[in-house]
């Protein structure tokens, strides 16, 4: 009984890791950039939802949509302002990476300046009593988080696999120069990818803030790091990999806390990462990168 509950706890955390990991994975897949500012997009989304919901007093669905819109704008804006020029001038990859870290620090400090560094209580959006499933008390947010994540994952898989823009994304990720020659607008495809990843992060941020109702300007950094680990574990660049990595991380974390030791939870998670990378360097579902000579 308690074991099942721990697994469900793990699935909930894992779902959020997975949603955030997707952003890392898609962006990495398409421009080989680890977008360290992605974690902070979550923070932006949470503050966006907070402003609309509490300060403006608008209904929940408006807050969710506003949060998504804000994150998409932020994601695309960051791409255009910070990365696009570097990419188009073939700057070394390390410059992009450092820029990403800079953007991350910028966002954290900007929000600290606007909202202060103290945590702000986040209102619960969904006032639904815990649901009783065969003797297990499961909170509504938990179920919502898992269901929404799985649905989004399926939708994303269809988008990438079946639509024209999905095909363009895959083409750019395969070979950006060749895609350009085939008439694909790589810049807008990359911007779309950033926007899509950020939109998913916004959904993650709303779910996260409901599960852990306190928002701070630094909430994205640890979450982002964990999600990044999930992305690497599952296979960087792979969409099902992000989901698998997120779920594995969440469940392992939860079970370690529940049955071994709370202090060891992070150690076990990162230990698993090291073992997986030793055995399969590209991650569980990662593509084997072949260097073209």
């Amino acid at each position: 009984m308690s074991f099942l509950l721990q697994v469900i706890n793990g699935l909930q955390v894992g779902s959020i890791y997975a949603l955030v990991a997707l952003g890392y994975n898609m962006v990495y897949g398409i421009v080989q950039l680890i977008n360290f500012a992605h974690g902070d997009i979550i923070m932006v989304g949470a503050y966006g939802a907070y402003v609309v919901l509490v300060l403006c007093g608008l209904p929940v669905w408006v807050a969710v949509l506003a949060s998504i819109a804000l994150c998409v704008i932020a994601g695309v804006g960051i791409e255009k302002v910070a990365y696009s020029r570097l990419r188009n001038h073939n700057a070394p990859r390390i410059s992009l990476l450092i820029t990403a870290i800079g953007v991350s620090i910028f966002l954290q400090n900007l929000f600290q300046l606007i909202f202060g560094s103290a945590g702000i209580p986040f209102p619960s959006m969904f006032q639904v009593a815990p649901i009783n499933l065969g003797g297990l008390n499961i909170s509504f947010v938990t179920i919502l988080t898992i269901v929404v994540t799985v649905l989004l994952m399926i939708a994303l898989q269809l988008l990438v696999g079946k639509t024209k823009i999905g095909k363009a994304m895959r083409a750019v990720s395969e070979d950006a120069d060749a895609a350009k020659l085939m008439g694909i607008n790589t810049n807008s495809t990359v911007a779309f990818t950033f926007g899509l990843g950020s939109g998913l992060a916004a959904v993650g941020s709303v779910l996260y803030s409901n599960a852990y109702p306190m928002i701070t300007p630094f909430m994205g950094s640890m979450l982002g790091l964990k999600a990044f680990v999930a992305a690497v574990l599952g296979g960087i660049g792979s969409i099902p990999g992000a989901m698998l990595g997120g779920f594995i991380m969440g469940i392992v974390e939860s079970l370690t806390k529940g049955y071994i030791s709370t202090q060891l939870a992070d150690a076990v998670v990162f230990g698993i990462l090291i073992v997986v990378l030793l055995v399969k360097p590209s991650g569980l579902l990662g593509r084997n990168a072949t260097e073209k000579v």
Binding site: S2, N9, G10, Y212, P213, M214, M219, S254, T262
Partner: peptide, 29 residues
């Protein structure tokens, strides 16, 4: 920020009192 695993264990032990000697932000979560 996630205390569900610990709380699930505590819930199973069904104590009379739960002592949470932490600062207010953690306590709120």
């Amino acid at each position: 920020v996630d205390f569900r695993s610990q709380l699930t264990k505590i819930s199973a032990a069904n104590p009379d009192v739960l002592f949470i000697p932490v600062y207010y932000e953690d306590a709120a979560l």
